[in-house]
Design a protein around this nucleic acid. Structure first.
Lengths: 264, 264
DNA sequence: AGGTATTTGTTCGTATGTATT
DNA sequence: GAATACATACGAACAAATACC
């Protein structure tokens, strides 16, 4: 039949006294590699448990622990009398960013407030059209405000918000706001934000903004640009914020999707 | 034979006829019930493996199979020396509305390459412990590299990656890498990254890094710090990257989920 | 159809290592 | 250092499901 010898590259030797990975974990990694490399093809059987014991020189218990890891990830399935079949290719894990509300995305706790510093109407030109992903000649409103923590002297940042004309009533006479502007829009006019595109870059603080936030011109700052779209893909609101370094950190947390849970 | 002591009546006795449910499955069901009934409370320990052996009159191996089922469902977590703690209630539906389509959270992926510039082993001190969320005295590896687009002269950024000692073999002799380091770790040692914490701030480019990336010292840059954790919450890898402004933009997209669609 | 060999599933036992108290 | 508790790994046996002759 076959030469009962180790044709397969042996497991990472636990030789040197350093901290090491468990045998079953190494075996699982090796088998995963063999599946993704095509050595074991989808739909075909992998070697039997006994054969794997011989190939890798370990006990059946260890082999089964490794196979269990692959089963948890949905890579294989096994049945008594049949053997173990490759069910699918290893998928790079998908990560979810767990946020539930727009307010959470904005990350400004309820402890911060917006203080409006200016407000004006405008008709979009070419430059606006590029920024707002709209056509020239549309009516929009522009509101600028400072984001502040009441206890702090220095504002966290300066923000400019473009709002499509028909929704601007929601923020008509407002001086200070808790929460988010998009929440105001949703409450007042019934638009439903369906998609948010967010871009974060580093920038040097422009002089005019530096003055507003009591910072040095040219200081490093986070520039966060967000586009808010409704279900039809219509641009509702665009915000551009400058946050001097040391006054704001953008934090997010991603968790792996559980195997078998599909996301539409 | 050994004394069949069945103190707890929960298990369907395997004796009579052919009640063909495995013992470990029955035990898992019993424990799940005890958790949802509040007999074992969230945050509190459940009996030790040995105690469960005695309570249910089965071997430790069977008990561990049952506990493994609960671990897969995220109900419990166990640690050597501590015991097994209840992590959450069964079927806790605490999932959220919006997802980030981060097929690549690390948005560089395929078109860019990492060029390793230095590599060393270290034993963590207090400062490391704070950064790595670990204890002083642990063995870690530190790899520094430049992220480059092959066609461009200027690198996108400079990155330092801390890797827990036992996983460092995966990147042992590597000079350039396509893709991500965490993918290497997963492939080589079988660790499964389960959670990523990401922090983005603005920073002024330190002189040493500015030199590496051919930029001006003090220039504004994105500083991106990421912590990679496995299912047990163990820190596997921590990366800190500096990306001068104009060389990299961090983009993400959030979409609302249809109301009523819940993720189990 | 029947019997046997193969393969995974379940369960026991034992020993040693590692992390924590 | 000792005791405790989980983690890893070896071995063995039998049961259940399937395949093959």
């Amino acid at each position: 039949m076959n030469p009962r010898r180790i044709v397969t590259p042996a497991l990472t030797t636990p030789a040197a006294g350093a901290a090491r990975v468990s045998r079953y974990a190494s075996l699982a990694a090796a088998l995963t590699g063999d599946i993704s490399s095509g050595r074991y093809k989808v739909g075909s059987p992998i070697p039997t448990e006994k054969e794997l014991c011989d190939m890798y020189g370990c006990s059946r218990h260890t082999v089964r622990q490794a196979l269990n890891k692959l089963k948890e990830q949905g890579l294989i399935s096994s049945h008594a009398g049949i053997g173990t079949l490759v069910k699918g290719l290893p998928d790079s894990p998908k990560f979810l960013n767990e946020i539930s509300t727009v307010a959470e995305l904005l990350q400004f706790a309820s402890s911060t407030r917006m203080h409006v510093v200016s407000r004006r109407k405008l008709v979009t030109d070419e430059a606006h059209a590029t920024l707002l992903h709209c056509y020239p000649g549309e009516k929009w409103n522009l509101i600028s405000y400072l984001r502040k923590v009441p206890a702090d002297r220095l504002p966290m940042g300066f923000c400019m918000v473009y709002i499509r004309g028909e929704y601007a009533d929601a923020v008509a006479g407002i001086k200070t706001v808790e929460g988010s502007i998009s929440a105001l829009l949703e409450k007042h006019s019934g638009v439903r934000i369906n998609e948010i595109q967010q871009e974060i870059t580093a920038a040097h603080l422009p002089a005019s903004i530096a003055e507003s936030v009591l910072a040095q011109p040219g200081q490093a700052a986070l520039k966060i640009t967000r586009h808010f779209l409704d279900v039809d893909g219509k641009m509702i609101q665009v915000s551009i914020g400058y946050y001097p370094c040391d006054r704001y950190r953008h934090v997010s947390q991603f968790k792996a999707r559980k195997p078998g849970v599909s996301i539409p």
